[in-house]
């Protein structure tokens, strides 16, 4: 007796679609972001949720990525938790504000810290995905004077980042 084959071999397109669906179900939502003006972007993988990294000619760094909202919490919770964590780690909180992030409300924590003999600014902006499962985190850092010269471009890039 001939044993029937369980199924046909799946098409490559179907595999990709299934992987994308699985990726989306796992919560790895795609995000929109572009580097600040005057920054060069590092190569990014084809997966739309892969981190964006960019650097200015004078060494200011900008990156956007997503994290899992685990445990699930709202923006206010993470804002407080982040402020506490960075404060305990020795960063000086320069500012703690809200900011628009692609139509949604985001939180922006401005930090300062010495790095060697230089003073660095370190900004962390984040917002929640519409489903609330992911957090988009945008970070920018660099030597304070050079950072301030590009502050407006960084602020615009943060505003244009989101889900």
């Amino acid at each position: 007796m001939r044993i029937p084959r369980a199924s046909k071999r799946p098409k490559p397109g179907a595999v990709l679609a299934a992987l994308a669906a699985a990726w989306a179900l796992a919560g790895c939502a795609a995000f929109q972001a572009s580097p600040p003006e005057g920054f060069a972007q590092y190569p990014r993988s084809r997966v739309s949720s892969s981190p964006l990294r960019a650097s200015s000619p004078d060494g200011i760094l900008f990156t956007v990525r997503t994290e899992k909202n685990d445990p699930p919490a709202d923006l206010g919770f993470w804002r407080e938790a982040l402020k506490n964590r960075m404060g305990h780690a020795g960063y000086r909180v320069v500012g703690d504000t809200v900011c628009p992030m692609l139509g949604s409300q985001g939180s922006l924590l401005k930090l300062a810290a010495p790095m060697g003999n230089q003073d660095y600014f370190y900004w962390i902006a984040f917002t929640l995905s519409p489903s609330g499962k992911r957090i988009l985190v945008a970070e920018a850092a660099g030597e304070s004077k050079r950072f301030l010269a590009r502050e407006e471009d960084i602020r615009k890039a943060i505003a244009n980042s989101g889900f």
Binding site: P51, R53, E67, D70, L82, R85, G116
Partner: peptide, 30 residues
Amino acid sequence: APLTTAESRFGWLNRLDLPSLMKRFPYANP
């Protein structure tokens, strides 16, 4: 300098600091 050992109970917060941000930028040409 900021401490990289200041642990939080929330995992993703521990990945936020200047040294680890810099490590994510390899010496490759963008």
